[in-house]
């Protein structure tokens, strides 16, 4: 579970002016739910995520049981995928994924099992011994995702787990986008609380339990996908005339740019 209320984030620029990045944002993600944060560039989506993971100072309250304990305990319960990776050294793929097991002391055998399972989950088992530096952007993203999944793979002693993903599907092909979202849903079903920043509205509407729309640091909509993905709100968010249809199979809203 994650509860954020009246979150406000501001940073001082070089000249001393304060810029408001996020203003008065409140939402709640229940255990096992997936929340997707959407909005145009610079709306404050990543800032919300970085406040939750402790990288940015904020005012307001952010509450989750996963934050209990010291650094080490926290790193067993909270996993974060940043938007970009700066890994610049020739690790091979399984070595990168194995770094996700660093906070745990589960032993080499168990770690190897989990790494292998995560490699399969992200469909990169065939890349296992390849040099990370030589992979394509989408492959690198899948490797980083596998690393993050490894970090919260098990719940030791039913401890609460929180997964924060910043644009995890930005470099993925269509097949792997859905593959990833299904994996995320599986984690949610195991009791992981998940917040994911996304640009693909249709993908978010298809898989998220709740959506939060941000625009210019402010919260403009929050609720179930069908409450957020409306022609009016999308027009407001992106300045674009759109048509919203509903999937005949799943019933989720589908956006068509017009």
């Amino acid at each position: 579970m994650l509860r954020v209320s009246e979150l406000k984030i501001s940073v001082a620029s070089r000249t001393g002016q304060r810029h408001v990045l996020v203003n008065d944002v409140s939402f709640e993600v229940a255990t096992g739910e997936v929340l997707a944060i959407i909005g145009p560039n610079g709306a404050g989506k990543s800032s919300v995520l970085r406040a939750i993971d402790g990288e940015l100072e904020y005012s307001g309250t952010i509450h989750s049981l996963a934050f209990s304990g010291d650094n080490r305990q926290r790193s067993k319960q909270v996993a974060v995928l940043p938007q970009q990776s700066s890994l610049n050294f020739p690790f091979n793929v399984s070595e990168v994924v194995e770094l996700g097991r660093m906070p745990h002391k589960t032993g080499k055998k168990r770690d190897t099992e989990i790494v292998d399972a995560a490699l399969h989950l992200m469909d990169i088992a065939y890349l296992k011994n390849r040099d990370y530096m030589l992979l394509s952007g989408g492959e690198k993203q899948r490797v980083q995702l596998a690393r993050v999944f490894c970090q919260i793979w098990d719940d030791d002693n039913n401890s609460p787990r929180l997964l924060l993903l910043d644009e995890p599907s930005s470099s993925l092909d269509l097949g792997h986008q859905h593959h990833l979202m299904k994996a995320i849903k599986k984690f949610a079903e195991q009791g992981v609380t998940i917040v994911v920043v996304m640009h693909d509205i249709n993908l978010a509407a298809r898989y998220a339990d709740k959506m939060l729309a941000l625009l210019c640091s402010e919260q403009v909509a929050y609720g179930e996908p069908k409450q957020v993905v409306t022609e009016k709100i999308m027009q407001r968010l992106y300045g674009l005339n759109v048509e919203v249809l509903f999937s005949s199979k799943q019933g989720h809203p589908v956006l068509i740019g017009a």
Binding site: D53, G54, E55, N71, R72, R74, S75, K76, V78, A79, V80, P82, S85, S86, L87, N88, F89, F91, V96, L99, G100, M102, P103, Q151
Partner: peptide, 20 residues
């Protein structure tokens, strides 16, 4: 050594892996 390995990922990634 493990802290340095984590740092190769980036500083915030290392922090999220429990490194001070």
């Amino acid at each position: 050594s493990s802290a340095l390995n984590a740092l190769l990922l980036g500083e915030s990634e290392a922090r999220h892996l429990g490194i001070s």
